[in-house]
């Protein structure tokens, strides 16, 4: 049976869906951002950046939905075998991920506003400008956006590497409980529904 909500041992269907949807969107988003930054000024640059902005807003909304859902649900516990520093690292990585998934779209949105290019969501809704045109702020935001995006890249590598380590080295449930499929209770953790 598909569980929508999280339990103490497993991510529910909604959390899983949001996780993998965002993983895919973030992959596309990084590609669009790199392409948009490197294209010469032309119609394809406008189109690429327009899609990058629309997708960024989508990711922002999804990140907020995820945080809300996370607050309303139990969070699966980390495997009991983890050392204290590993727990701290896991927490820091996840805090950083959520922070970046909010900060990146917001800095991008400020960038566009400061440059005098209003943002729309897929040509459907025009968003308000967050700031007035301001070249100095624009340049500061470009730098911030690049630094944050690079940080996100590094943290994603760490995140994926940790998932691989949990699955193939530690042989625990950390990756499996983010995947659909039959429940397999880790021997060290009790399911709170029992």
């Amino acid at each position: 049976m598909v569980m929508l909500r999280n339990t103490r041992t497993r991510w529910g269907a909604l959390s899983q869906f949001l996780h993998w949807l965002m993983a895919a969107l973030i992959g596309v988003q990084i590609g669009l951002g790199l392409a948009g930054a490197n294209l010469p000024l032309g119609m394809s640059k406008l189109a690429t950046l327009a899609r990058h902005k629309s997708l960024g807003l989508t990711i922002l909304a999804l990140a907020l939905i995820r945080l809300t859902w996370r607050a309303l649900n139990p969070t699966p516990a980390l495997p009991g075998a983890l050392k204290a520093y590993e727990r701290r690292l896991a927490l820091a990585t996840h805090v950083a991920l959520y922070t970046l998934l909010i900060a990146l779209p917001v800095t991008g949105w400020i960038m566009s506003s400061a440059r005098g290019f209003p943002v729309s969501w897929f040509n459907l809704v025009q968003l308000p400008n967050l700031v007035r045109p301001d070249p100095a702020l624009y340049h500061a935001m470009v730098l911030t956006h690049i630094v944050l995006a690079s940080t996100l890249g590094l943290i994603l590598i760490l995140h994926v590497a940790a998932a691989i380590r949990h699955h193939f080295v530690l042989h625990d449930e950390v990756l499996r409980r983010m995947l659909p499929g039959p429940r397999r209770i880790h021997p060290g953790v009790m399911d709170d529904r029992h």
């Binding site: 406008l46 327009a50 290019f117 209003p118 729309s120 969501w121 897929f122 025009q126 968003l127």
Partner: peptide, 8 residues
């Protein structure tokens, strides 16, 4: 209109 947003 540029990509669904007003360009002034």
């Amino acid at each position: 209109e540029q990509a669904g947003a007003a360009n002034v």
